[in-house]
Design a protein around this nucleic acid. Structure first.
Lengths: 208, 208
DNA sequence: CTTAAAAAATGAACTCGTTCAATCTTTTTC
DNA sequence: GAAAAAGATTGAACGAGTTCATTTTTTAAG
């Protein structure tokens, strides 16, 4: 039997992640004690540390799953984007934002982002950073796709402009998570207003 | 005598900040123990907590001072900016980056940024966020100034474009702090490459 | 100058994340 | 199938940030 030990491992890893996510959502990251997570997952504290390097890693693992879904949602936009530059960008940005808040609260995002900045060399932080890179590349891909279809001026550096768009929407998302009172709609409106002039400038023609 | 108590307070606050900064620089934020900081500042641990809400606050206080200096250096650029858009932006961005690393290490920056994201409601985090807003406004002011001088197309929304530039340079600075191997020169080059196409698009005329 | 009140300083005790030597379980070997 | 080796689990102990009841110092009042 090749599988008993492996099966137990997978089972425990899943239980820990589920317990942690439930408690983080329920009572917040700081208030959820490792001891409580371990108890809910029916393992000891020591075992929990065999599966995750530290408390933050558990959270970042959850976030990485959510970001993966965001990427997939984004690729569906890229498959058939609106031809108008501003609209296409807006569609992608709003997809990102909508899919980012399905499982995670603002507080969980704040903690996860803080960890990925503060301890960038832990494996899961690296994964998070890598996913960020993929999101950035996806925005650049959108600009390039629009360029290929003639909607964006051909001389524009799609990669550079895509990175600027992404860094802006990312920074605005941080801002959004910092201000508890800010709504998703406000966030979308502010980012749309920031992107509008740049989108207009890179557009080949104005659609009337 | 109105001043004995006030004088002692100011003196202790200063000693604590100096001790903490010295130890953070010397051995890193995490390794510097509150007990050591208190001892070096010649106060008790409890007293230290009368002056700062927590360990992070002490660091954020240091960072706030540095950002203030960055803002001042930036305003000197704004007083007499190059007329060419790309050059002017580049001058401002490089001033920001150069002045950001005088007293603070990458690790200290990472910690400070993480704290300001994770606990945005502590007084000093608010101060940090406010200073960030001022930096963003300063970039927008530069674009507006260039517009007033005819170097930037008059129909461009200076505020929106300024915010996009700032969010980009800010995000890139985070990236820079995350990657220990990345040099200041690489950072500057990458940001310049990102800004170049946008700067070109908003320029009124090409200078030959 | 004495005394009462207010403000500040103190450090032992507490909390919670993390570690690690001892123990138990599964797999492999013969 | 027994014994040895490898792999996992466990929870008590540890370390560092934070709190708070007590003590000390400063100011104000009489």
């Amino acid at each position: 039997m090749a599988g008993l030990r492996a099966k137990q491992k997978a089972d425990r890893a899943r239980r820990i992640l589920e317990a942690a996510t439930a408690l983080f959502r329920q009572q917040g990251y700081d208030s959820a004690r490792i001891e409580d997570i371990a108890e809910m997952a029916e393992v000891s504290v020591g075992t929990l540390y065999n599966y995750y390097q530290n408390k933050g890693d558990i959270l970042v693992a959850t976030v990485a799953m959510e970001v993966t879904e965001v990427l997939e949602a984004g690729s569906r936009i890229l498959a058939n984007p609106p031809l108008h530059v501003e609209e296409a960008l807006r569609a992608l940005v709003e997809t990102y934002y909508d899919h980012s808040l399905v499982y995670l609260s603002k507080e969980m995002w704040r903690t996860a982002m803080a960890i990925s900045i503060q301890q960038p060399d832990t494996p899961l932080s690296r994964r998070y950073t890598e996913l960020d890179g993929q999101l950035s590349a996806q925005v650049a891909d959108l600009v390039a796709a629009l360029q290929a279809r003639g909607a964006v001026i051909s001389t524009v550096d799609a990669r550079a402009v895509g990175e600027v768009f992404f860094n802006n929407l990312n920074q605005m998302f941080i801002e959004f998570c910092k201000v508890e009172a800010m709504t998703l709609e406000e966030l979308k409106a502010r980012v749309a207003a920031q992107h509008r002039p740049v989108a207009a400038l890179i557009s080949s023609a104005r659609i009337v």
